[in-house]
Amino acid sequence: MRKRNLSSLALFLAIIFLPYWIYLPLLLVAVIIFPLYWEGILFGFFIDILYGRGVTAFPSLLSPIAFITVILIIVLLPLRERLRFNV
């Protein structure tokens, strides 16, 4: 749990200060490593708010990073049972 929180904090700071080619792969790694990484969806929205065209209530399905994160988490749910991580 501590690792998860620290990683989330690092990811949050990376989104604010670092280039996208650092924080987007970090987000992907976090989604793969941590079980049900729901924080990733919030980070997706956060990226779209700060650097994208904003998130408006209904067409936010087109908010790309949050949407891709949701898909990834759902796809990884059954896959995770067959993988083992030491986290």
Partner: peptide, 22 residues
Amino acid sequence: KNYSRKIIFIIGLFILGALAFS
């Protein structure tokens, strides 16, 4: 395993997040 609860949670969070962030 039944993942429906987790999927509902994720989709619910996505919808709520979209509203809150907007």
